[in-house]
Structure formats: structure tokens, C-alpha cells
Simulated assay, not measured.
Amino acid sequence: MQKIQTQGVHHITLNGADRQTSIDFWEGVLGMPFVFEQPNLDDHDVNHLYFDPGDGRLITIFTDEARKKDSSPNPNAPGTVHHIAFSVSRATFTQVERRLEERGIPNSGHKDRGFMDSIYFRDPLGHLLELASYKFEPPVGFTHAQVLLEAHRIRVARGDMAISDVHLADAIEDLVKRSQESLSDDRGPKQPY
């Protein structure tokens, strides 16, 4: 038996209400370009809208003009989606709370997650969304996930509860040391002053 190896999220499809609500939210609030639409090929009475969340992948929405929007929170039960998180730049993150408040959108305010900063709010249909900004950039040739895996190992070895800046900094240093050769015999910290 072999695994079925995934290579990333292809797309996420949500059930929407009317077409314009989806366009106004996904493009008009979150800035995701509306890239194409067509009928739902499994149900031609439903429309299928496609948005680019910023990485060339897709968020798609099934819309039906007969469905009314309901902003009640979606169920929080086993088998349901808790939230969807989207990446934003640090510069954008510092503006998110104000920009949501300008629209009257309730939100969690800034949440420090140790390795990232987050803010939570609901879309017009009750889906919980998160906008997240990493506190670090991975070294060239590495991904955020690889840095987090290394930071996790460091955190566990030290007996700490959650990843913090020190774990991230040490993880990045370790990854660079292992991946980049040096002519120095001793690559340890020094005090040249």
C-alpha cells in the first residue's frame, strides 16, 4: 500500500448565497481578484465563482440567487470547518483591524500566536476567517513549514509550551548552518568587541 502524496491545496469551495454578496466580499473586502465563473457542472441551477487569494490557487463559491445570506456563525462541531486562514503581509496586517472596523465588521482584534499574528472575523455567511502574518521569513531555499518543524523540535527539547521568537530565530540559524557550508572551523557565536 502507498500514500497518495498531496502537493498543496488546489482550491476550497464554499456555499454562498447570491452572486453579488460573494463578489463584494471576496474581491471588495479581501481584494481577491474575481478570475472566472461558470455554472456548477454538477447542478446547472447553481453558479460557480472563482477568486485568486493571492497565490494563484483558488477560492470558489457556489452561488444561487434564491439563497439568502445568513451571517449566523456556522456550526462548530466535529466534521465541520472551524476557520479558513489567509496570509497577509506585515504591512497589511497592521491595517486590518481598522479596515474591518471602517466597514462595521466585528473582529477579534490582534492575537499574538507566537510564530504569527492573527485577527479573526466572520464573512457575510458566518464562516470564521483568519488573516495571519508570519513573524519571520524562512531562509532562502526553505519554507515556513520547515522553519516551524525545526522550531517545534527546539521548543519540545527545551520543554516550552509554545513556539516563540527565540525558537524561530534558533531554528533559522540551525537550518542555515546545516544547509550552507562555511570555511570556518568554529561557527559558534563570538564577541568581536
Rank of each mutant, 00 (worst) to 15 (best):
D165S: 11
D43Y: 09
S118T: 09
D43H: 14
Q5Y: 05
P39Y: 11
P73D: 08
A77L: 15
H83T: 05
F121Q: 03
R153N: 14
H110C: 11
V9M: 15
H127G: 00
R155A: 08
E181C: 00
Q2W: 01
K111S: 13
E102M: 06
I154W: 01
N74K: 15
S164K: 13
Q146T: 07
D55C: 13
G54I: 03
E27H: 12
A151S: 07
K68M: 12
L128E: 11
A77K: 15
A91M: 08
V81D: 02
P53C: 08
D186P: 02
E37D: 13
A171I: 05
E65H: 11
E137A: 06
V29W: 02
S87Y: 05
I4Y: 14
N76K: 15
A162Y: 12
L128F: 07
L128K: 05
P124H: 01
S179Q: 11
W26M: 02
M32I: 07
T80S: 00
V88L: 03
V46K: 03
R19F: 10
H167C: 01
D24S: 04
Q146L: 06
H44Y: 13
A66P: 05
A85W: 05
G31C: 05
H48D: 05
D64I: 01
D186G: 10
F93P: 01
H44E: 10
T21W: 04
D70A: 05
N47E: 11
L168E: 01
G31Q: 06
I154Y: 02
Q38E: 15
E27I: 02
D45V: 13
R67Q: 04
D70R: 00
T143M: 12
I172N: 01
L175G: 07
V176G: 01
L14W: 00
V156E: 13
S182A: 03
Y134K: 08
E130D: 11
I84V: 07
P139G: 09
H82P: 06
S72Q: 10
F86A: 12
F51P: 00
I119N: 01
A151H: 02
L58T: 06
R90Q: 13
A85S: 13
D160T: 06
P124Y: 02
E181P: 04
T63S: 10
A66F: 10
N76S: 12
L175I: 09
H82N: 14
T60F: 02
E150C: 08
I61L: 03
F86D: 06
T143A: 13
